[in-house]
Design a protein around this nucleic acid. Structure first.
Length: 272
DNA sequence: ATCATCCCCTGATGGC
DNA sequence: TGCCATCAGGGGATGA
């Protein structure tokens, strides 16, 4: 599910309820997620107080002390719910945090590609973060940077933008939408993209990511906001999963092709 | 180094 | 109805 806007939505929901809250209880499921839960996680967390949560790429991070962080990654199907009543864990519920303000954070993940981890020390030097590129909404993500990163690449632009070391947080839905907005074919090689086109890609990225965050992300199947609402950006999708629908600009039929075994959608007339 | 492919896992869907 | 193959928002390991 979750790309940057979905994780940002989760972070904002947590921000409203975790700051200053003390952890009173923890449930940890039997099954291993992408990585095992840290040893003694329960012992370490109970009694600790959350500080301000933040997001980096597709990771949601809550500091629990000086240079100590609780880190979530939602993988493909991970969901965070915020509940007023203590839930009894049902299928695919892997992690529940109870706090002294009577809120409960539930981590549910059908496919278990997500994980929960504890990180100590400088986050940006941690193995999960050290290679991650600039945030798309930061000033560091600008046309010259992008041009430098792609102008000698043999890869298709679709794959380049999915590469977290080039730009952080984009996934399959938003890359498809960004390339449509940029009028660039997903099959175009990185080295065939000019500086001017890079500016267009950068601007489209910022615009679409901002709009998606405002909408609470995109619900295709799994994603829901932590309060149970849908991600309303699904009503703004122009190409993703629109195979054989009409292009909103030129009325041509939207095409679907597989690029590196991931579905890619584009308008063959608008995107070159 | 760079790039494509496979794999982790569960569930939904569609063809036969 | 059942069975099988394919696909899904991610990303790490592998090997050419």
């Amino acid at each position: 599910m979750p790309e940057l806007p979905e994780v940002e939505t989760v972070k904002r929901a947590l921000y409203k309820i975790v700051i200053g809250a003390k952890i009173t209880d923890l449930y940890i499921g039997e099954k291993k997620l992408r990585i095992a839960f840290p040893k003694n996680l329960k012992k370490i967390l109970i009694g600790r107080t959350f500080k301000k949560p933040f997001r980096r790429a597709k990771y949601c991070i809550i500091p629990i002390g000086n240079l100590e962080y609780l880190v979530f990654h939602l993988g493909m199907s991970g969901k965070i719910r915020i509940l007023n009543d203590k839930p009894s864990p049902s299928k695919h519920d892997h992690f529940i945090i109870s706090m002294d303000n009577n809120y409960h954070i539930l981590f549910n993940d059908t496919r278990r590609f997500g994980f929960v981890d504890l990180i100590k020390g400088n986050l940006e030097k941690n193995k999960n973060f050290i290679k991650i590129g600039p945030e798309p909404l930061s000033e560091k993500f600008e046309k010259k940077y992008l041009f430098n990163r792609i102008h000698n690449k043999q890869q298709k632009i679709k794959n380049i933008l999915l590469d977290q070391s080039v730009v952080a947080g984009l996934g399959n839905i938003y890359v498809n939408e960004i390339l449509f907005h940029s009028c660039i074919s997903p099959k175009r090689q990185g080295r065939n993209i000019s500086l001017n086109k890079c500016e267009i890609i950068v601007n489209s990225t910022k615009l679409i990511i901002k709009k998606a965050i405002r909408a609470g992300g995109t619900t295709i199947k799994d994603h829901i906001q932590p309060d149970g609402n849908l991600g309303y950006f699904k009503f703004n999708l122009k190409v993703y999963s629109k195979t054989n629908k009409n292009c909103v600009n030129c009325n041509s039929l939207i095409k679907e092709v597989m690029i590196s075994s991931r579905a890619s959608f584009y308008c063959p007339k608008c995107q070159r």
